[in-house]
């Protein structure tokens, strides 16, 4: 079943032209986000809602022929004094590993957060990132040569202050993993003026690769720095971390963010598919040993 799904998607994507492939990707992402939203309505905020979202993502990963894992964690409060009063944070990151085709390969993290603000269905923030990461993971899994092990991870509790990603980064570093880089997407489905512009927070070692890929795809790209998404949890530990998103600085970001109106039907799915293909292209080059 899972193999058939991946194979049929691969056939659609690889036999169609770039335009058709992007349309097919946009359609499959639209369908995924609508299903995710329906399965986790009205939001992915409370412990129960986030539990339902984690179950859904486990099943989606398994459907794609990958082995999903729950990584539960406990984490201190944002301020140490609160540790005297409140219980610790607790949550679950959902992960899947795509092994490298080489021995002792470093690890590349692909991440997006799955929780949403209370009362918000979180289609743009951040089902869009989840949909993109699943598509990229499928493409990497279908790649015959992989110079890096890829860990796909869906983070819990980003809206509380990047709690899930901080816990995951700590777990990986404590386990002594050789982490090459981290790539994430947070809110990448809004483009009201149709200019296709994106923003990216990337270190010097990564920005030129994304910039080149964007140029090849005729995507206006702006380099920014921000601290409000999960890549920061990795950057703070000295890991090269990238986050791609819609044009916040150009004031073309979703007005529905954190609202009950952040639904699948408000998204620009062609824009999301294009952004997905951009990151996918960069990462496939890396997997094939063409990164420069």
């Amino acid at each position: 079943m899972a193999l058939r799904l991946v194979a049929s998607l691969a056939i659609v994507l690889f036999t169609a032209g770039p335009g058709q492939a992007q349309e097919a990707l946009a359609d499959s992402q639209r369908e995924f986000i609508a299903r995710f939203q329906a399965a986790t309505a009205p939001a992915r905020s409370s412990s129960r809602e986030r539990g339902a979202a984690a179950d859904f993502l486990m099943a989606e990963i398994e459907r794609r022929g990958l082995t999903a894992e729950r990584k539960p964690y406990r984490a201190p409060n944002v301020h140490p004094l609160l540790d005297l009063i409140m219980p610790p944070f607790s949550g679950v990151n959902v992960t899947a590993t795509i092994p490298a085709t080489l021995d002792d390969a470093p690890v590349v993290i692909l991440g997006a957060h799955y929780d949403s603000e209370a009362g918000s269905p979180g289609a743009d923030d951040n089902a869009s990132g989840i949909a993109a990461m699943l598509s990229i993971a499928e493409a990497i899994a279908a790649e015959p040569r992989r110079d890096y092990t890829v860990i796909l991870v869906f983070f819990d509790q980003e809206e509380e202050g990047k709690i899930g990603s901080a816990a995951f980064a700590r777990q990986l570093v404590n386990a002594g993993e050789d982490i090459h880089s981290m790539h994430s997407i947070d809110m990448a489905g809004w483009d009201s003026d149709g200019d296709r512009a994106i923003e990216i927070d990337a270190p010097d070692s990564w920005y030129p690769r994304y910039e080149r890929a964007a140029r090849e795809m005729d995507i206006p790209i702006t380099r920014v720095t921000y601290d409000s998404s999960d890549h920061v949890s990795f950057r703070d530990r000295g890991i090269d971390a990238v986050c791609l998103g819609e044009a916040f600085r150009l004031r073309d970001s979703s007005p529905h963010r954190h609202r009950s109106t952040d639904t699948a039907d408000t998204l620009n799915h062609a824009y999301l598919a294009r952004n997905t293909r951009l990151m996918q292209g960069v990462l496939l080059r890396l997997m094939r040993g063409q990164a420069s």
Binding site: R74, A75, P76, N77, P80, D83, P88
Partner: peptide, 17 residues
């Protein structure tokens, strides 16, 4: 008990307290 739980997840303040 609170101190031990927090010490295990890297927050020493309750233990110091």
């Amino acid at each position: 008990v609170r101190a031990v739980i927090y010490a295990l997840i890297g927050s020493p303040l309750p233990l110091v307290f």
